[in-house]
Design a protein around this nucleic acid. Structure first.
Length: 563
DNA sequence: GTAGGGTTAG
């Protein structure tokens, strides 16, 4: 009570001072534990805003939201309610107060509250500037409230000042949640409003096309921007080149890369990294290193990603020693290996079965100040289980949990897979139920491991039951699962079941592996279902797969007998 | 400090 009085005593003094002096009176008294009131805060905020001291009003609001400045006479929300009441204030200040409150909630990462004050502002017929609106959109999208962002965008776009950024932000949001059509819709709205999309907007949407698997539309947009004289830049080319590569369209990617250089757009580190990554994935390490040299010649500085990509490429070719040497070179180059560098190299050593080296790198990583992630543990756990070192596995799981990291679905997959591979299907199911108890929902990989386990032990009844239940769970079986089921059916001699799944794979756009063809044909032959066997044989040859010798023997014998 | 690109793990 006494303190409230003090604050009231302070008010006349603040009124008489210039804005910054008044503010310092306010903050120093607040720090001394003064209980401020609606009046004193309202006064100081209005003063700061009407004097254009926005950063000061902003930091004051942030302190109020975070509770750094508090008072027993109000809560932040009662205060903001009071502040935004329509009263006799001059109109511009009222707009600015609303905006300041919305911005402060945005900066405090409080999407729901920011949205609340935004809606209140619109409801009062006030028009927020595009900055305020755009920042709100960004926060909503970043906080996974895309639907809210979409609704706000569409419901209020007539009452807000929109600019190119607003549309760009919204398009990016659409692409991120996979609503490509909506992204194009926004582009259309933008054009209708007479705003010309710039290169950033086009690049964002082209990237969205690539990431959502619709490279064709991305390509069309690229042409469209050319027709509209919007000049593609390094970003645009890199996005599309990478998109081509991701879709396996190697030729188009390289062609565009050449076109980029011809047009005089210089490839930068992103472009090179994308190119190098493609070479590595194709196992063309020589080309990758040629590009690496070319970068140096052209003065494009490589970065951690460049090195990581090359380290990964070498590891995939099992050239792990060279990968480690490259990591040393990276350090000499003044770049510190990051989490991905270590994870990649540790995985490399695990894959050649050198767990000692993997462990020592793991220690090196920790002593260099890089903290292991869940992925690091998963890699090591996979390495130890592959090496059938169960003590190593247990240690890793223990250390991981001691660090406060809980096993992820990937961890469970690895553990269950190891058990299945050592014929311990019951234990695998036990792990499966402990996973469910931990609140994790099994995904297609987990079911893949379980189905594999059931097929290995020959329990096709259970395997088929599980396989059929995938559909009810809205999970699409992947090619691994199909191949596993086919393997299981062949083993038990159910040729027609295997054949049906083989066809189903094709209908779903998957290519069965050689083993599936070989074993299905084999049992079809055994059942003397020659016509079906011949058809499959033709299919597999067309796909470029090599039938096994025994199949040739069986088939040619049948042909001979029939003649 | 409002929108755009590249690398790892089942």
């Amino acid at each position: 009570m006494a303190q409230t009085q003090q604050a009231l005593i302070l008010l006349p003094k603040m009124v008489k001072s210039p804005p910054l002096k008044a503010l310092s009176l306010f903050t120093s008294s607040a720090l001394q534990g003064f209980q401020h009131t609606h009046q004193s805060i309202s006064f100081i905020l209005h003063l700061l805003i009407s004097s254009n001291l926005f950063s000061h009003s902003q930091s004051l609001l942030l302190k109020l939201i975070s509770g750094q400045i508090s008072s027993s006479s109000f809560t932040p929300s009662s205060l903001f309610h009071e502040l935004t009441q329509p009263h006799l204030d001059s109109f511009p200040t009222h707009v600015l107060i609303h905006e300041a409150i919305i911005n402060a909630h945005v900066r405090s990462q409080l999407p729901e509250q920011a949205l609340f004050y935004f809606n209140q502002m619109i409801g009062r017929g006030l028009v927020p500037g595009s900055n305020t609106f755009n920042n709100l959109l960004i926060l909503l999208i970043k906080s996974n409230f895309f639907e809210k962002a979409w609704r706000v965008f569409n419901e209020t776009k007539g009452n807000v000042k929109l600019d190119v950024y607003s549309f760009g932000i919204m398009i990016k949001g659409c692409c991120e949640v996979g609503y490509l059509d909506k992204g194009f819709e926004v582009l259309g709205q933008m054009e209708e409003m007479g705003l010309s999309p710039n290169v950033v907007v086009y690049t964002t949407l082209i990237d969205g096309c690539c990431k959502n698997g619709d490279i064709e539309r991305g390509k069309q947009l690229f042409y469209k921007m050319g027709e509209l004289d919007v000049v593609a830049n390094q970003y645009t080319y890199t996005v599309l080149i990478n998109g081509f590569f991701k879709m396996g369209l190697k030729k188009d990617g390289i062609e565009l890369y050449e076109k980029m250089k011809l047009t005089g757009i210089v490839p930068n580190v992103y472009t090179y990294n994308s190119m190098i990554c493609r070479c590595c994935n194709d196992g063309k390490l020589n080309n990758a290193f040629e590009l690496f040299d070319e970068m140096r010649e052209r003065g494009v500085a490589c970065n951690v990603v460049t090195y990581n990509t090359l380290i990964g490429g070498l590891c995939q070719e099992r050239r792990v020693l060279e990968a480690e040497r490259l990591m040393c070179r990276m350090k000499r180059d003044g770049l510190s290996p990051n989490l991905i560098s270590y994870n990649t190299l540790i995985d490399g050593y695990c894959s050649i079965g050198n767990l000692d080296k993997a462990s020592s790198l793991f220690n090196q990583m920790k002593s260099s100040g890089q903290s292991p992630s869940l992925a690091t543990y998963n890699i090591l756990i996979a390495g130890f289980s592959e090496a059938k070192n169960s003590a190593g596995v247990t240690d890793m799981v223990r250390e991981m949990e001691a660090r406060g990291l809980s096993p992820s679905k990937v961890t469970y997959t690895i553990l269950m897979d190891a058990l299945v591979r050592s014929d311990n299907i019951e234990k695998a199911f036990q792990i499966y139920s402990s996973m469910e108890k931990a609140g994790l929902v099994a995904d297609i990989y987990i079911y893949g491991v379980l189905i594999h386990g059931l097929c290995v032990v020959g329990d096709m009844k259970e395997a088929s039951k599980l396989f059929k239940s995938l559909d009810e769970m809205h999970l699409k079986p992947n090619d691994v699962i199909y191949n596993t089921m086919i393997y299981g059916y062949c083993k038990e001699g159910s040729s027609y079941r295997a054949l049906r799944l083989l066809k189903e794979m094709g209908e779903n756009g998957m290519v069965p592996n050689v083993a599936s063809y070989n074993s299905t044909i084999q049992i079809l032959c055994k059942d003397e279902k020659w016509t079906e066997a011949e058809v499959l044989l033709k299919d597999m040859i067309e796909l470029g797969l090599k039938p096994s010798i025994s199949i040739w023997n069986m088939i040619s014998k049948a042909r001979f007998d029939n003649v």
